[in-house]
Amino acid sequence: MCKLPGLGLFGPGGKLTSLSAGVLRPAADPADPRTIAARARFFGADTVDPQTGALRTDRVVLSWVGCTTFALAIGGSVFLLDAWVPRLTSTGYVPATPQGLVDLAPAAIFIGHGHFDHAADAGRIAQASGAVVHGTAEHCASIAAQVTDPAFPTAVHGDAGTAIGTREDFAVGAVEVTVVRHLHSARTPSDPVGGSPRFFPRPQPGIVLTHPPTLSGLLQGVPRLRDPEGGVLLYQFRVPGLCLVWHDSTGPLTERAPQVFDTLAALPATDVQIGAVQGYNQISNGLRDPRTYIEALTPALFVPSHHDNWLPGLTASAATYDAPLRAELERISAPRRPELRTLHDPADYVRPQRLTFQL
């Protein structure tokens, strides 16, 4: 959702940009004890071979790392969905670090859009792990600019000018992937037909006192505040037995790109949808936009994200979304209504048991 205004001092080449570079320790071999320990923590000890670090292929596991970042074990590989550990204004609220994500030895990083709260750690993580960065041309260029002499591969899926609704299919290892161009959240006039009650939770700034920001967190985060969106991508990941959709923003397709609903409806049947529910349009149309994505995708299970208290003063805890989200799902006819599996901060951060799917 968020793009905060930056200050000229902190822009490209600014003073804090040069101070913020922090090199992460390179990823180890999967059999290295460090990698095995990281994978066991993020995916569960019974998902990881204790000798080789190999992942079970008969299950898919996700760990929430705040906002819309997830570590994903699928098809024997580790993927990162977005790459940012929240710590700009509150450090340690999310019990994870960029180094911890590097230690997973990810094969790929999938970027939904380029704002700081989705991609601010992607450059350092990719540089240290060698993970392939997937995103638009603008995402990849912006992430490469986060580090000196980038040495990681990229996979470009269109650019900022690509037509909304464009679909691309490819494979990463044993995983089939589809990417769809869609829209960032945005406020539109109140919808008298399909709109929902306005909603914006009261901010809860208290965690700044219990998890105050640190200088290192500010030095790493502030230079990224002006990173551009660069287009918005939705991803579907498929292995035999499970089809997973993830999107880190939810746009007003009703007014601005209704053709995308047909594109989403034409995707292979979705088992699990992880979607952003916080967005600018909740001020005018409540949680209508998340509902419209759900109605198009018809998942069996919906998991909300981008709704946690990562920016105290502007955001609130995920639990404040429970009642309006359940009310919104009630507007979907019972045969098409998904099961809701909530994620609450901070209890559900790095909690693989919450999102483990047996194939």
Score class of each variant (00 low, 15 high):
88 L>H: 07
26 P>G: 06
155 A>P: 00
18 S>M: 11
133 V>F: 02
58 D>M: 03
304 P>R: 06
83 A>C: 10
16 L>P: 00
49 D>L: 08
312 P>G: 05
165 G>K: 06
268 P>W: 09
345 D>Y: 02
310 W>M: 10
52 T>W: 09
13 G>S: 14
204 Q>G: 00
37 A>W: 04
48 V>G: 11
52 T>I: 09
131 A>S: 08
138 E>V: 09
358 Q>H: 14
197 P>T: 04
253 L>I: 12
177 V>A: 13
284 S>K: 08
320 T>G: 03
125 I>K: 01
309 N>Q: 03
145 A>Q: 08
116 F>V: 10
255 E>F: 10
216 S>L: 10
310 W>P: 02
268 P>M: 12
232 V>C: 12
247 H>V: 13
283 I>K: 11
13 G>F: 08
289 D>G: 08
329 L>S: 02
306 H>K: 09
156 V>W: 00
305 S>M: 11
232 V>F: 08
78 V>G: 01
221 G>A: 08
226 R>W: 12
140 C>H: 01
333 S>R: 14
351 R>A: 14
78 V>A: 00
289 D>R: 09
70 F>G: 01
173 G>S: 08
95 P>Q: 03
118 H>Y: 09
237 F>G: 03
355 L>K: 02
23 V>I: 14
64 W>H: 08
92 G>F: 02
3 K>E: 15
182 H>S: 14
217 G>Q: 10
